[in-house]
Design a protein around this nucleic acid. Structure first.
Lengths: 187, 187
DNA sequence: TTTGTTTCGGGACGATCGTTCCGGTAGTTT
DNA sequence: AAACTACCGGAACGATCGTCCCGAAACAAA
């Protein structure tokens, strides 16, 4: 007979697995990938040290799972963001500038974590599909009659974010606005 | 009396210091910042472990010194690059596309190391001036009648580089050429 | 209940880490 | 020559690391 109800043990296991991934992401946001160890993750999640080795075959596996999960979240976030902006009939530039300011302000830690994914993906080929996913989501959702202009737009966003991360204080949406405007202006 | 000749001991010390920095950079290019330890650096440089702690008060100091040195090299490199291109009467776009392809191909490790500096600078404020230096060099050297267009150009370069790092194989100068062209086109 | 499976968690092992100590050496100054 | 300074490098300390072992507990199937 086919089992429809999920195993209670496996359900708990999956839940803890997810908690460990969430704890790892919090640590990366706070201290970077360098701060991730079995013990710090376990402490952050409030579980014993061995829990990480049980649910993830190695520390590297934990990192990979965390960054893949992070990338997936980011992709769905981008999806809803576009959907929301579209239904609102947003002008685009204003929306984008606001999101950039948010990514460099309140969500700064998360943004740093995401770019650590980028760099980790540069060294670990298995992470590259995950790292590319949010680019793919954008590419598939946004109408781009001009392929080159769209690539320039994506590169510009990345550049503004990574340059904004080393500013002493995060730029405001108003400061970013003219740059985004120029970036979106057709030529 | 004023001492003009440098102390032979200090000269040797400075030389070894530079060798340690160079060894650290090689390790970052190969294994990333995560691979940098007192012992790996010492082994790479062919000196005893204690040498790193003598010349640098801590491992963090070694990292900071390395990344500042790396950033300074990059800045002077950019300086000469612009100078060379200018004297040759280069068209710009072709030059830039070639340099991007080189950064993502033969010099890929170095490029990754440079972006690890960026991310480290995002977390360590003392590194930010060094991380911004190559941007400053470009800003001071290149004539930019349009401030916004120049910022977009710089952001686009960064974005193309960091996105090129997660490609499965590095893009060629020919592939990058139209994007750079669009990036430089006035509007 | 009995048997089997999955998760849990305390404890520990060996490796590696950053750092310190300290005697030895080379170079400079008096 | 002697005194002083700066660099060198072997050895080791305590801390922390990733990972493994193994019995207990929770749960499912028989």
């Amino acid at each position: 007979m086919v089992k429809l109800q999920t195993d209670g043990r496996k359900a708990r296991g999956e839940k803890r697995r997810a908690e460990l991934i969430a704890a790892t992401l919090r640590i990366i946001e706070r201290d970077g990938v360098a701060g991730v160890t079995h013990r710090t993750v376990a402490a952050e999640a409030g579980v014993p040290t061995t829990s990480t080795t049980y649910h993830f075959s190695s520390l590297d596996d934990l990192l990979v799972a965390t960054l893949i999960s992070c990338a997936r979240d980011m992709a769905t976030e981008v999806y809803w963001m576009i959907d929301r902006a579209r239904s609102r009939g947003s002008r685009g530039a204003e929306e984008v500038a606001g999101l950039l300011a948010e990514a460099l302000g309140p969500r700064r830690g998360r943004t740093m974590a995401e770019y650590e994914l980028y760099l980790l993906a540069a060294r670990k080929p298995e992470l590259r599909p995950a790292a590319r996913r949010w680019l793919d989501v954008l590419t598939s959702m946004v109408r781009h009659d001009d392929e080159v202009a769209f690539r320039v737009f994506l590169a510009g966003i990345d550049g503004l974010l990574i340059q904004g991360l080393i500013d002493d204080e995060p730029p405001s949406a108003e400061e970013l606005r003219p740059v985004v405007d120029y970036l979106l202006k057709p030529r």
